[in-house]
């Protein structure tokens, strides 16, 4: 009888969050050439263009060279791009009506968001790894611990941009959301001292820069190399921005699931 038919049917565990889904999503993401270029190739190319010229390889910073310093900045930039575009995938999927289709499956909205976050962090990790490998062959010098910890911190702190990407993905119903977010991230990177050192920008600007979202991630990621700057201010920056973006994403996400 029907109760039996119902009893035989089970809901998936973890609301549908599964390695199978992550694997398929990952494969689809890597199929997108623009994503691959944006997140894996571009940061490495930027590093080669801006980080390996002139005296950078001989000039020292902390226990490494300037090339190494710029490498970490570019790894942060890559991780940012990767996690943002990972989060922003929801925008495309909403535009295509895929989110609606997924609501005809046992996948719970929270599990969907969790899958997107994991994906964002996976490609973020790949992006950082690619940058570090290129850097190692292109003359970046860092102490062994800095190789490990700078990379790890660049990756972990990029979580703030996974939240940012999700927020924007729910906010902007565009198919080309990354065309807006790409330039936005570039501007934020300048403002946060990722592309040029803040002290070259003048006092006022350097003060404002400390409140922008990229600043904290950059400072933290480079700390194992530089042992310089106000680490706690940087941590506070990352925590506050993560909280803000996560709250924004939550707010839009609630509206999105309540709407239909």
């Amino acid at each position: 009888m029907t109760t039996l038919a119902v009893a035989q049917r089970r809901l998936p565990r973890f609301g549908g969050f599964s390695p199978g889904m992550i694997g398929l999503e990952l494969r689809r993401m890597l199929r997108n050439r623009r994503t691959v270029i944006f997140t894996f190739v571009m940061p490495a190319v930027f590093f080669l263009l801006f980080g390996t010229g002139g005296d950078y390889k001989t000039e020292r910073i902390g226990d490494g060279n300037v090339t190494g310093y710029i490498l970490i900045s570019m790894a942060v930039y890559g991780a940012m791009l990767a996690t943002t575009s990972g989060g922003a995938m929801v925008s495309i999927e909403r535009a295509a009506g895929w989110s609606r289709q997924l609501r005809l499956t046992p996948l719970r909205p929270a599990a969907y968001v969790a899958v997107k976050l994991v994906l964002a962090m996976i490609i973020g990790a790949v992006s950082v790894a690619v940058a570090l490998v290129v850097g190692a062959f292109a003359g970046a010098q860092l102490p062994a611990t800095a190789w490990v910890f700078c990379g790890l911190l660049a990756w972990v702190c990029a979580l703030v941009f996974a939240a940012f990407g999700l927020f924007m993905g729910y906010l902007l119903p565009s198919e080309n959301v990354m065309q807006i977010l790409g330039p936005a991230l570039a501007i934020l990177s300048f403002a946060g001292g990722l592309f040029v050192p803040l002290d070259t920008l003048g006092h006022t600007f350097a003060t404002i820069a400390k409140f922008t979202p990229v600043y904290g991630v950059g400072e933290i990621a480079r700390f194992p190399l530089t042992h310089d700057g106000n680490l706690w201010a940087a941590v506070l920056n990352v925590v506050v921005w993560t909280a803000l973006f996560a709250a924004g994403a939550m707010w839009r996400f609630r509206r999105d699931t309540a709407r239909v």
Binding site: G97, W98, Q101, L104
Partner: peptide, 17 residues
Amino acid sequence: VALGLVSAVMQTGGLLK
């Protein structure tokens, strides 16, 4: 829906290219 008792073929959309 979550139990798979009911499913649907919708008019448009719902697919990723």
